[in-house]
Write a protein that binds this DNA or RNA. Structure first.
Lengths: 149, 149
DNA sequence: TCTTGACTCTATAGTTACTACAGAGTTTAC
DNA sequence: GTAAACTCTGTAGTAACTATAGAGTCAAGA
């Protein structure tokens, strides 16, 4: 099958398939005389594997690592376990961050009573630097980038 | 003060400050004869505002919007409220995604008993495409990019 | 006065995991 | 033969920065 059909069958876009090839996640397939990529159904499994991993938020380089482990099945599996464990921790801390964030936003949302104009609405004021107002001292110590991966 | 001191005092990196200037989040400051940026302490507040917003995961373009609202305080504040509300929803769905993810990873982690080698460890097998094994049908329907913003 | 080191400047490239083109060539159906 | 649909490569764009190169500026010490 050509790349268009593979895209439909795998649910990956054509560009994504080519991208995965470029990144070494799937191997370069044969070509037709006209230089079109020609796939067999084995690559469908590989793409499915990648999709499953991506759904678990593994990065492409982690997936690449897993793919290479698949190709040498006698390797000890600790590496796999560690990767999953790391991801568990990352997911946990992101959940925590997001929950804190959600709480802060909710608090903020309450600041706007029935104000009609921006200067009466408490929200913008709340986002201004705080002189000595806030009782909890470390509210704004969190790094801005900390909540994204 | 010059940009280095501002960076220290604000907790933003020098590059970030210049980036914010380029993006129109803070206005271009005066320059010295030697073309160095020269700031007064007002910009500290603006950077603090931006940092607070970033800590709440607002995007730079949203922050830009808020900044422009600050400059016209008679605007109705509904726009601000809507932005916060949207962010609340986004945060909620991301928390949900992450919790699902975390559950899936934990499940996966259990697949490795005391296996020593990759081919005995259940994890990689679990990530392979599933023929008709899984009782819940829609496990892998989630878009890979859905869990990131 | 000269030099050294610290600082700053602009412009550009890199990060992640793709997506979206442009411009060209290939295949297929009519 | 031709038009539509498909594919090719290569490049640029996304978000919010970070890092680097190469040049210029400034302050302090010899």
């Amino acid at each position: 099958m050509k790349i268009g059909e593979l895209a439909k069958r795998s649910g990956c876009s054509i560009q994504t398939i080519r991208y995965y090839e470029k990144e070494g996640l799937i191997s370069a397939p044969e070509r037709t005389e006209g230089n079109f990529r020609l796939y067999n159904s084995v690559v469908l499994e590989k793409l499915s594997f990648i999709k499953n991993c991506r759904a678990l938020d593994l990065t492409l380089s982690e997936i690449k690592h897993l793919v290479s482990l698949q190709n040498s099945p006698e390797t000890p599996c600790e590496a796999v376990n560690e990767m999953i464990d790391t991801h568990l921790l990352v997911a946990e801390s992101r959940i925590e961050d997001l929950q804190k964030l959600h709480g802060d936003l909710k608090q903020l949302r309450l600041k706007c009573g029935n104000a009609r104009s921006v200067d009466q609405c408490g929200i913008l004021g709340e986002l201004l630097p705080k002189p000595e107002r806030s009782p909890s001292g470390t509210r704004n110590e969190r790094s801005p980038s900390g909540t994204r991966k």
